[in-house]
Amino acid sequence: MRANLQITRRLVWSGFRQQSTYRLAALGGLVANATFGFLKVAILFATVRAAGGELNGYDVATMSAYIWLSQGLLGSVNLHGRSELTERIKSGDVTIDFLRPLNVQLSHVASEVGASLFALIPRGLPSIGIGVVVVGMAMPDSPWPYLLGFLSVVLGITLGALVVYAIGTSGFWLIETRGIQSLYMVVSGLLAGLFVPIGLFPTWLLAFAEATPFPSMLMYPVDILSGRVSGVGSLRLVGVQCFWLGLTWLAGHFLTAAGRRKLEVQGG
């Protein structure tokens, strides 16, 4: 157990460091975050104003918090569906991974989480900074939302990596997984509340979104960090995140085992 923990820590750290070499990529990501952020500001502020300054608990300041927090997390939470695993299955390198005395799921997810945590520095914080300085946004006064929010962000990032990993295992059975990947990209973006907060969804769509792990990746961390949900409510959201974390971990675990059997039977 301790050895496992140490390996995980190392993998997270190496993923973190690897990312730090792509400075231009990080800058590109920030430009993208900001551009989409300003477009979201335009349309969502207009929506709030058209509704008379308040819409389902959102005013301009809390909407701004939603926009810039979600933009900040965009570079870290995997909503694009691409994973190292699919590449390695395609190239056949995954057989090497299976030969290592390492849990394949753990190592892939850990290094992705490391890379994602790094992305918070050049992409996440500056995006939020733009929101605070240029547009202005609502922020909670007490330290609790920040602490619990950070935990929730880490859970959300890990959940994203786990779900994408589980989906990536489809590569064991399919020749081409790009279709599935873009399917994931569309569905996760909508249900995680990337372009419109799920609080603005009609009731039926909201119920549907809440029955999936996607809001736990982005919407809930944003809700906790912005203080929109607080107290017991925020603890409940973290609980929901943990539930999905466990479930997707198990799913990924069994899919990996099945994929490995498939490889062994067919010899790669």
């Binding site: 929506t47 058209a50 279709g179 873009s182 569309v186 569905v187 419109v196 009609p202």
Partner: peptide, 21 residues
């Protein structure tokens, strides 16, 4: 299918906003 859904979801995002106002 996924490409169809991309278009469909993009439309849904517009509709969700207008559903509120």
């Amino acid at each position: 299918t996924s490409s169809f859904l991309v278009g469909f979801v993009e439309l849904a995002e517009v509709w969700v906003l207008f559903h509120n106002v």
